[in-house]
Simulated scan of single mutants.
Amino acid sequence: MSRPAEQKRPLRIGRISYLNVLPIYHSLEKDAAGSGYELVYGPPAELNRLMAAGELDVASTSSIEYARNAQQYYLVPDLAIGSCGPVMSVILLSRQPVETLEGQTILTTSQSHTSAALLRLIMRYHYGLNVTYRTGSASEQIQSHNPPQALLAIGDEALRLRNHPMYPYRVDLGEAWRRWTGLPFIFGVWVVSRDSVAAGRFDTDPCALLQGGRDWGAQHMDTILDLAARHDFLSRDELVEYFRGLVYTMGEEAQKGLRTFYSKLVEAGELERAPELVFYDHAVHTRRTAP
Rank of each mutant, 00 (worst) to 15 (best):
L75E: 08
I64F: 08
Y66C: 01
S60E: 15
V90C: 10
G82M: 09
A67V: 03
V87L: 04
E65P: 06
D78C: 11
S60H: 11
A70D: 07
G85L: 05
L79P: 01
Q72E: 09
R68H: 11
I91R: 13
D78V: 11
D78L: 12
T61R: 04
T61D: 11
L79V: 10
L75I: 09
Q72P: 08
S83V: 01
P77V: 06
C84S: 14
S60G: 15
A67W: 05
L75T: 05
Q72A: 14
A70W: 06
E65S: 13
V87M: 05
N69C: 05
T61A: 15
A80C: 13
S89R: 04
V90M: 06
S83A: 15
L75N: 06
D78I: 11
T61E: 10
V87Q: 06
G85P: 14
L79S: 01
I81P: 00
V76D: 05
P86F: 03
S63F: 03
T61H: 03
R68A: 00
Y73A: 00
C84H: 13
V90F: 10
T61S: 15
A59E: 05
S83Y: 02
N69Y: 05
I64A: 11
G85H: 12
A59S: 15
V90K: 04
S63Q: 08
I91V: 13
V87A: 03
M88A: 12
Y73R: 03
Y73P: 00
Y66V: 03
P77W: 00
G82N: 08
P86L: 04
M88I: 07
Q72K: 15
A67G: 03
P86N: 10
V58R: 09
P77C: 10
A67T: 02
Y66G: 01
G82H: 06
P77Q: 07
E65I: 01
M88Y: 15
A80N: 09
G85F: 05
L92M: 12
Q71H: 15
I91D: 07
Y74N: 06
G82Q: 07
Y66L: 06
G85S: 14
Q71W: 09
V76F: 04
S83L: 01
Y74K: 08
Y74G: 06
V87N: 04
S62E: 10
A80H: 09
Y74S: 03
D57N: 12
L92P: 02
Q72F: 06
L93C: 12
D57Y: 09
I91L: 13
I91P: 02
V76S: 01
A70T: 04
C84Q: 14
M88H: 15
N69R: 14
S62K: 00
I81F: 12
V76I: 13
E65Q: 14
A70P: 04
L93P: 07
N69M: 04
P77S: 10
R68N: 12
L79E: 03
D78K: 10
S60F: 14
Y66P: 01
S63T: 14
V58N: 08
S60R: 12
